[in-house]
């Protein structure tokens, strides 16, 4: 097996473990490249099926390309799509111009996710986060418990060795499962290239700008780039070292904001 085969096999193993151990699970689909790759791997694990909900947390501020992509591929891949929104906050006018970014993310993403988990009583959630994404994410385990308030006790996580993952869930707790934890951004793109995985057009350069990471339109900034094909993106990544999330307003606002967001349960 080559490098990508090994990454793929490990992820498939984890996805199958999660499904076996916690039947009430959902996969979080932000429609970005990582979670779309995760959907691809879920389909691999279950022979073309996605045997649980695909969850899109919608703030209402996503790019229109994201909505178009969601509608097209959720149909093509026969997803049981659940769109989670915090209707209360949206009606009350919460948005990136209203208040600070932390509370906007908090209400429109975190609270929306909490409400959705409450409603469907998921025991575990599959998330496409990677260790190389951000310093704080390096602390993650493959299977990581969160309490009802989404708090993450990163100092006292259960040990995880030899692929024996946490397989018990209690009460209000839910388990976050991270099948892509061991992938890098470059791995993801090389895999997308190899497998021909469909991806939102925002990642490709237009007028010498492209998005390296996508989310809500008002809070994403494109980076300078000529890469308008997957091949060129792979080439570009082999030669740059600009932090991936540097295009996101969220990260600049405060050095440790990510940690705050994470502790609050922001994905």
């Amino acid at each position: 097996m080559d490098h990508l085969d090994k990454l793929e096999s490990q992820s498939v193993y984890i996805i199958r473990e999660a499904y076996k151990q916690f039947k009430d699970i959902a996969v979080l689909w932000s429609i970005g490249k990582d979670s779309t790759t995760l959907m691809w791997l879920v389909r691999k694990a279950f022979y073309g099926n996605i045997p649980f909900h695909a969850l899109h947390i919608d703030t209402g501020y996503k790019f229109k390309e994201i909505y178009e992509f969601r509608d097209e591929w959720s149909k093509k891949w026969c997803m049981k799509l659940v769109v989670g929104t915090n209707d209360g906050s949206i009606k009350a006018g919460m948005g990136p111009k209203e208040g600070d970014k932390l509370s906007c993310c908090g209400q429109l993403k975190t609270d929306a996710l909490k409400q959705t988990i409450d409603k469907y009583r998921y025991k575990a959630l599959l998330l496409g986060i990677r260790r190389d994404e951000h310093g704080i994410r390096a602390k993650e385990r493959y299977f990581s418990p969160r309490n009802k308030q989404f708090e993450w006790d990163y100092k006292d996580q259960p040990p995880e060795l030899w692929d024996q993952f946490k397989n018990q869930q209690h009460g209000e707790q839910h388990i976050r499962v991270h099948p892509l934890l061991h992938w890098t951004e470059l791995d993801i793109w090389m895999y997308i290239q190899r497998e021909n995985i469909p991806i939102v057009s925002l990642y490709f350069a237009k007028n010498r700008k492209r998005y390296r990471s996508i989310g809500c339109e008002p809070c994403c900034n494109p980076v300078d780039s000529e890469a308008d094909t997957i091949d060129k993106i792979v080439e570009e990544l082999k030669t740059t070292n600009i932090a991936e999330r540097s295009g996101r307003a969220q990260d600049k606002e405060r050095a440790y904001m990510m940690q705050k967001l994470r502790a609050l349960g922001y994905m």
Partner: peptide, 22 residues
């Protein structure tokens, strides 16, 4: 500090968890 990214860790000066990097 490159590795010890957590606020608390920085204050206490200890590596808490198994971090990975490339």
């Amino acid at each position: 500090y490159i590795m010890d990214h957590l606020e608390e860790e920085r204050d206490q000066g200890i590596t808490i968890d198994t971090a990975q990097t490339f």
